[in-house]
């Protein structure tokens, strides 16, 4: 399992559209399960579940922990982190 922490800098936080974009990005990464939760919080959600991710209510300034399990963890984790930096 690989993971990284990230602090959301985007004004709108993780709202509908960015959550959807994230799901699309991850859909293409076969064999890996990518989950997200607020750092330190027990509740984590598979990023493919867009409504669940929106339900976390992640706002600007919140720190999130993203974990990758299965598949090429190193490559997927790096890719997802890059995506966060570009979009959130």
């Amino acid at each position: 399992m690989k993971s990284f922490d990230y602090v959301i800098t985007d004004e709108v936080g993780i709202h509908a559209r960015p959550a959807g974009l994230l799901a699309r990005e991850v859909k293409g990464m076969a064999g890996s399960t990518v989950s997200i939760g607020k750092t330190g919080d027990e509740k984590v959600v598979n990023v493919l579940k867009v409504m669940g991710v929106m339900g976390l209510g992640i706002k600007k300034g919140d720190s999130v922990t993203v974990t990758v399990e299965g598949g090429d963890e190193d490559a997927v984790c790096a890719k997802v982190e890059e995506f966060f930096k570009a979009n959130f």
Binding site: A16, R17, A19, G20, L21, A23, R24, N46, L48, K49, V50, M51, G52
Partner: peptide, 18 residues
């Protein structure tokens, strides 16, 4: 257009589907 793209993503959402 964004609105409908968002709807599109929600329609194909795994949570909803499951």
């Amino acid at each position: 257009a964004l609105l409908f793209e968002t709807h599109q993503m929600m329609a194909e959402d795994l949570d909803f589907e499951e």
